[in-house]
Design a protein around this nucleic acid. Structure first.
Length: 270
DNA sequence: AGCTCATGGCGAG
DNA sequence: TCGCCCTGAGCTG
């Protein structure tokens, strides 16, 4: 589900299916985006971009459909003609290569170029984008008294990181989530950033979040195989009370800025 | 059938 | 910091 890697996959998929320059049919069976859908109906998709957790579908001079999935939103693709709508479909696109059904997004709105740029201007560098400048993130991190756990979730600092990547990247670098951003060294930050780039790229490839190194897999550690309930293999995310895969200390959990934080108090003691 | 929780984020106070 | 948006999965009963 929706951290940055999901949105980048969606952008690629929309491009592949609808980017051929042919007109696309658009409607909003749910009705909440009826006006916008009517405006793009019959237009070609001219581009699809992801920036952090924001998806932008370009329709030439008409503008951009801005989609933010939030916590619940999802997109289902299919081949062939679109079936009769089932449930609440905010935006449905259909073309020769199939259809796409968008449900439950926090945002689905038609924007001008300027409005799109204003949204992107508020976002920090996205580890999945070639134009990302990690120096911008370091400036914010190194100047902040806020915890690194909160900073990683702040889309103005880094765009696209969510609760899973946040928890996992801090574990992988042995960093106490409550440390202030400005207590991090540049070396620590650089290692976190490059790890995010690698982990999130792999997430795009595999359509799931895997963060456990080969030497810590259950097989390598001589333990029975294990399946995490969210579809990926992780060290601490949603493993509260379970033994740390590295040191067997119980994984801790706490609420930070209204989100669940998970970490190993032993491996992440400094 | 009804509850709770979730990989997000906004605005009110 | 809280409530809300709004959907689905996984419980409980």
């Amino acid at each position: 589900m929706p951290e940055g890697h999901t949105i980048h996959r969606l952008a690629a998929e929309y491009s592949t299916r609808f980017g051929g320059g042919r007109p696309v049919r658009a409607d909003s069976p749910q009705g909440k985006f009826a006006d916008g859908a009517a405006l793009i109906d019959g237009q070609p998709l001219t581009g699809a971009q992801a920036h952090g957790k924001h998806l932008f579908l370009g329709f030439g001079p008409i503008g951009w459909v801005h989609v933010h999935l939030g916590l619940y939103g999802k997109v289902a693709f299919g081949t062939g003609p679109a079936p009769a709508p089932v449930g609440q479909i905010r935006l449905r696109l259909a073309g020769a290569a199939g259809y796409a059904e968008l449900r439950g997004p926090t945002a689905c709105a038609l924007l001008t170029d300027a409005e799109k740029e204003a949204i992107e201007a508020r976002l920090g560098p996205d580890p999945l984008r070639a134009d990302a400048d990690p120096e911008l993130a370091w400036r914010r991190v190194s100047a902040s008294r806020v915890s690194i756990a909160a900073l990683l979730m702040d889309q103005k600092v880094v765009a696209g990181v969510g609760n899973v990547y946040r928890a996992e990247v801090l574990f992988r670098h042995g960093i106490d989530p409550y440390r202030a951003g400005r207590s991090l060294s540049l070396a620590e930050w650089s290692a976190i950033w490059s790890d995010l780039v690698a982990l999130m790229r792999e997430g795009v490839r595999n359509n799931r979040i895997d963060t456990v190194r080969a030497e810590h897999t259950p097989e390598a550690m001589g333990r029975p195989p294990r399946v995490d309930d969210h579809g990926g293999e992780v060290y601490v995310y949603r493993r509260a009370g379970m033994p740390c895969l590295v040191c067997a200390t119980e994984v801790a959990t706490a609420t930070l800025a209204a989100r669940n934080l998970f970490w190993c108090p032993s491996c992440q003691a400094c």
